[in-house]
Design a protein around this nucleic acid. Structure first.
Length: 347
DNA sequence: AAGACGGGGAA
DNA sequence: TTCCCAGTCTT
């Protein structure tokens, strides 16, 4: 049996029972694939169930508001996925009459759908012979065939895409793709792969040459920026002052407390002396409480976050600032750091 | 071609 | 800590 067929055989015996594997509905497949981008199955699963329950069809999704979608997406990260889904759902509703496309050529044009997702939906929903190349596939192919081209270089991506399509079982593209990914996720794992029970280890370059830990090769030059966030907690009875973030930074269009960002970690007293703080303060504003510094880790940034509770405020809020009832906070899409703090603080 | 974009789980 | 997850978009 050749390599792809061995994996297919392995898949039939070892696959997980996942809800999106019981449907051919392109909309449902799309929902699962977007949620699973850069996201573990266990983390995405509850979101998939909630989204499908709230938006059973793409028409239901298209009728949602961005606030609603982001609120449902809260905690999953990479929020542009949620915003792009709404754009795509509305386009599918308008241009395709609410019928989600399942051909690669149509899918690749949609917002939030790249090469991987187009191949996934086209093969799972349309039975189109397109090989998926995700993190699992990169790893499995790099190890088995001993490919040391960086998976995140332009040339490397081309090499792996070509190989993946050569291997593709064109009679069973959906099962083939599922098998490749499942094998990478469950057996040929990044760390401590289960080579001891691997059905294809005899043909595996990395197993034979003891290169499991060096393959796949990935160029990594991640620059991490430090940022210092001072959040102001301003309450007026059972109202709390909130701010809607704009585009061009993390957490686009999500909600936070009034923020004063500083170039370095500062004492709260000095933060309040800054010009940026003036619009929130009056002569009789006093500091009520100061939180410890919370470190919040993002992929490209480390946030050092402090919450400063104030008594009294100055102006009627304008623009993107507004007071909202505390009990309605749960309807806003909040970054995790804000959500966790407020959940604790308000209870 | 490189950088930005979240959050969490595993080792 | 470090890695990386059923990647995509922007510059």
């Amino acid at each position: 049996m050749d390599f792809p067929n061995e994996l297919l055989h392995w898949y039939h015996q070892n696959k997980r029972d996942l809800p999106w594997r019981h449907t051919n509905d392109a909309y449902v497949i799309w929902l699962s694939e977007i949620i699973l981008q850069q996201t573990r199955v266990e983390q995405g699963l509850p979101y998939f169930n909630r989204f499908l329950e709230k938006y059973p069809t793409v028409s239901d999704f298209a009728a949602a508001t961005e606030d609603e979608v982001l609120n449902l997406w809260q905690g999953l990260g990479y929020y542009s996925r949620g915003r792009n889904m709404l754009i795509t759902a509305r386009l599918v509703q308008e241009q395709y009459g609410g019928v989600f496309p399942s051909s690669w050529e149509q899918l690749i044009k949609l917002k939030g759908i790249g090469e991987y997702t187009a191949a996934a939906i086209a093969s799972f929903a349309g039975n189109e012979p397109r090989a998926v190349v995700d993190g699992n596939v990169y790893r499995v192919l790099a190890r088995y065939f001993g490919i040391d081209e960086p998976i995140n270089s332009t040339q490397g991506a081309k090499t792996f895409r070509k190989l993946a399509n050569e291997l593709l079982n064109r009679n069973e593209p959906a099962l083939h793709n599922q098998a490749m990914m499942e094998f990478g996720a469950l057996l040929c794992k990044p760390k401590n792969p289960a080579c001891g029970i691997c059905p294809v280890r005899e043909g595996c370059y990395a197993f034979k040459h003891n290169a499991i830990t060096t393959l796949p090769v990935k160029l990594n030059k991640l620059k991490i920026r430090k940022r210092f966030f001072n959040y102001l907690l301003i309450k007026d009875g059972d109202l709390i002052l909130m701010h809607k973030r704009g585009a061009g930074d993390i957490w686009t269009n999500m909600y936070q407390l009034p923020l004063i960002e500083t170039a370095e970690l500062m004492e709260p007293h000095h933060v309040l002396d800054l010009p940026a703080a003036k619009s929130f303060l009056s002569e009789n504003t006093s500091v009520k409480a100061i939180s410890a510094v919370h470190k919040h880790v993002l992929t490209h940034q480390h946030l050092y976050v402090r919450f400063i509770e104030l008594d009294g405020f100055k102006n009627k809020p304008t623009g993107d600032f507004f007071f909202i009832e505390v009990k309605k906070i749960k309807n806003l899409a909040l970054p995790q750091i804000i959500f966790i703090f407020l959940t604790k603080f308000l209870n």
